[in-house]
Amino acid sequence: MSRDYTRFTMSQRLQHIFMFVPFIILVLTGFPIKFPESEFWSVVMSAAGGIEKARVIHRFAAAVMILDFAFHILYLGYNLYKKRPSLADMHLVPNGRDGKNIIENMKYFLFLSDERPRFHRFSYIEKFDYWAVFWGMFIMAGSGIILWFPVLFSKFLPGIVIQIAYIAHSDEAMLALLAIIIWHFYNVHFNPRIWPANKVWYKGTLSEEEMEHEHPLELEEIKAREEASK
């Protein structure tokens, strides 16, 4: 019997959408300024309506993204307070199993083993994505807000902080874009085992088959729990 397993709630799916839509807009309005001589980004810049409009759009999209992240922090805090989960139930926290999984996966990749690592709710790949965005948000939003109000921040921070913010914003943006279009897109689209796309971001569920393939350990636990409660 095939059934669907809820992976992301409606709130979580919306949080993802309110993260990636501003992300795309921020890339399209930011990179033309990072690469002012690039022909490709010139086309994007004119589509955005020129630099003056792009700067306004960039800040609006940034505000949406920051609010989304702020909501996520509150959401985390609320759930931690209300559910008081044990460390084992906080599935995104890196743990010893990740190290074990990495070694197993390397062995699998190098044909030293035919067993794929059995992932729990979140594989080390997914944990990396989550924490990369978490770190990236602090760098990008922090430096972005400083560059938005440089004079204000210079009243209580040393001048070097503005210069660091300028470099950090530009370089971390590059890292984020590369990580998304190469790493994240491979893992959720271009990976031949996933192609053409992992639909969980809008469906919110995985089929039994997908669960068995991607999260067998979690599936096992769910089934064991259901067995026990019968």
Binding site: Y108, I125, D171, L175, L178, I182, W183, Y186
Partner: peptide, 19 residues
Amino acid sequence: TAGTMALLFAHIFLDFGRW
């Protein structure tokens, strides 16, 4: 950036290679 991307690329190529 270079270090992170090198690791991620290696992971992608190994994964694809196994497939």
